[in-house]
């Protein structure tokens, strides 16, 4: 189980702890297409971490099944299964007695790779997560910053090139600025190395930013909605989802698209006082610009500063409307 991304299917996967009447995860069924990032999000008690840990069987499934590339996780040897799944947790859990390289090489060593192959892989991964293979290589975890540690955690999880990665609030304990940078890097990384990722967070903004699909779980481990971020923001399935994504879900939707993604208005009739912006700006930021400048529209310009189109407040409102 290595290399190519694999489809993950939850088939009525259920977890119920002995002596408890309620479910931790209640007949969860969803399909995560190969190579996509699925974010499990919800309030505490929603069973999102439990659902994730059933995949690598850190928590046993009570009822139902989970399959990876068509094979039931219950049928696989648990150790083999785990070695084939990258696992990143919030506290990172780096081994403090091993260097950065030692940490990253853990699973390849268990798998019996030869030295040269391990060394090469470690270098490759450290570069991939933007660490310096020469200097950071032989440092101990205690010598790294929080952000660096999480990068090592990520590199360690990817070491044996697993088709599936599980990430449990990986950026939860990191300061907001570093978190944003790590999120961006992770998305870039994911484009390079397609893997099927299950990502747990309690932060809806992170879910919207990271996820190809979002599964919202509510108390009692029930699935409230499973859809793309755009669809969840545009049409929440019920009040619970609407409240969970927040009253500003319109603005959040705007943040998903840039000016380049939409049909812009004609350039003629712009005033020189209209604020200018590049077409890589999100609609949300463009709206903010209009509001702060007191303008009715913004003008998108290309690299040379030539206007390429306009975006007006009415236009933005139409994009969010029922016919969008």
């Amino acid at each position: 189980m290595s290399g190519e991304a694999a489809e993950i299917v939850f088939d009525h996967a259920t977890k119920r702890y002995a002596g408890r009447a309620d479910f931790a995860v209640d007949h969860l069924s969803l399909t995560i297409p190969a190579g996509e990032i699925c974010v499990l999000v919800g309030p505490s008690g929603g069973g999102k971490t439990t659902a994730m840990k059933m995949v690598n069987r850190l928590i046993d499934i009570t009822e139902g099944d989970i399959t990876i590339a068509g094979r039931s996780v219950r049928s696989l040897d648990v150790i083999e299964l785990r070695r084939g799944i990258g696992y990143v947790i919030q506290q990172i859990g780096l081994f403090p007695h091993m260097t950065v390289a030692g940490n990253v090489a853990t699973v390849p060593r268990l798998l019996g790779w030869d030295r040269a192959r391990i060394d090469a892989r470690v270098r490759e991964l450290l570069e991939l997560v933007c660490l310096d293979p020469d200097t950071d290589h032989s440092r101990y975890p205690a010598q790294l910053s929080g952000g660096q540690r999480q990068r090592v955690g990520l590199a360690r999880a990817m070491a044996a090139d697993p088709p599936v990665m599980l990430m449990d609030e990986p950026f939860g304990a990191i300061d907001p600025i570093t978190r944003e940078r790590l999120q961006d890097e992770f998305l870039r990384l994911h484009k390079e190395v397609r893997k099927t990722v299950i990502f747990v967070t309690h932060d809806i903004d992170e879910a919207i930013k990271i996820g190809d699909r979002i599964a919202i779980l509510r108390e009692g481990g029930r699935l409230a909605q499973y859809d793309t971020p755009e669809q969840i923001l545009a049409s929440p399935a019920d009040d619970f989802v609407a409240r969970f994504v927040g009253a500003d879900r319109g603005l959040k939707r705007l943040a998903l698209r840039t000016l380049a993604d939409v049909q812009l208005g004609a350039v003629n009739g712009t005033s020189p006082t209209d604020p200018r912006c590049t077409s890589s700006m999100t609609l949300r930021d463009a709206l903010s610009l209009m509001l702060t400048e007191g303008a009715k529209q913004v003008v998108a310009v290309d690299d040379a500063g030539r206007p390429v189109g306009t975006l007006s407040i009415e236009h933005v409102s139409d994009l969010l409307g029922p016919n969008a």
Partner: peptide
């Protein structure tokens, strides 16, 4: 030995014996 380290070891597929010899004992040193 911190709980998160043990969870990471379990999640990475270390057996009980490997966890003892590679993680717990060195950290208890």
């Amino acid at each position: 030995v911190p709980e998160d380290v043990l969870e990471a070891a379990r999640g990475m597929g270390l057996t009980r014996c490997q966890t003892l010899t590679r993680i717990e004992l060195p950290l208890a040193l």
